[in-house]
């Protein structure tokens, strides 16, 4: 067991956890933040995507204890009083059906918009599809997810 402390969605949290605890387990089971979904647990689907120190990572493929002192943002932390533009865009563009992949899609979407903006690159539909390589959706066929991210990019 190791005591790990981090800042999750702006709040300081800590717990004694077994060293092999995954970040996804820590978020879901210790903090009861169940918006971070575990679809595959094998680094493929991206349903568990969260931001660690401002960068998107797969929470199922990181040890909680290795992130001592980190700042973590989960889907529960993106709305700031009102929904985040990415959340609004998924709503407006019918970017989800069952919703299982959606938290990961939104975390990946926010990350790619920020990253492309920082690097001065254009985030067109082709780039969004390429960037979604690590996020799998079994329902929508992706068209509306791509539209949602494009829409949000214009409003963020």
């Amino acid at each position: 067991m190791t005591k790990v402390t981090m800042k999750v969605n702006g709040r300081k949290v800590g717990a004694d956890v077994p060293d092999q605890t995954l970040l996804s387990e820590f978020l879901r089971e210790n903090l009861r933040l169940t918006g971070t979904h575990v679809g595959c647990d094998t680094s493929q689907c991206g349903a568990c995507a969260v931001h660690v120190n401002g960068k998107v990572v797969k929470a199922c493929t990181a040890l909680a204890v290795s992130l001592e002192g980190a700042e973590v943002t989960t889907i529960e932390g993106v709305a700031n009083g009102e929904l985040h533009p990415m959340q609004v865009a998924f709503n407006d563009n019918h970017g989800l059906q069952c919703g299982f992949c959606t938290p990961g899609m939104i975390m990946a979407g926010i990350d790619m918009v920020n990253r492309y903006r920082e690097e001065g690159r254009e985030l067109d539909a082709a780039a969004i599809r390429h960037e979604l390589e690590g996020n799998i959706c079994r329902c929508t066929g992706y068209h509306n997810i791509v539209k949602s991210i494009q829409d949000a990019a214009a409003k963020m």
Partner: peptide, 9 residues
């Protein structure tokens, strides 16, 4: 390599 999230780690 991999995808954006994997490349960050």
């Amino acid at each position: 390599i991999g995808d954006a999230a994997v490349r960050n780690m």
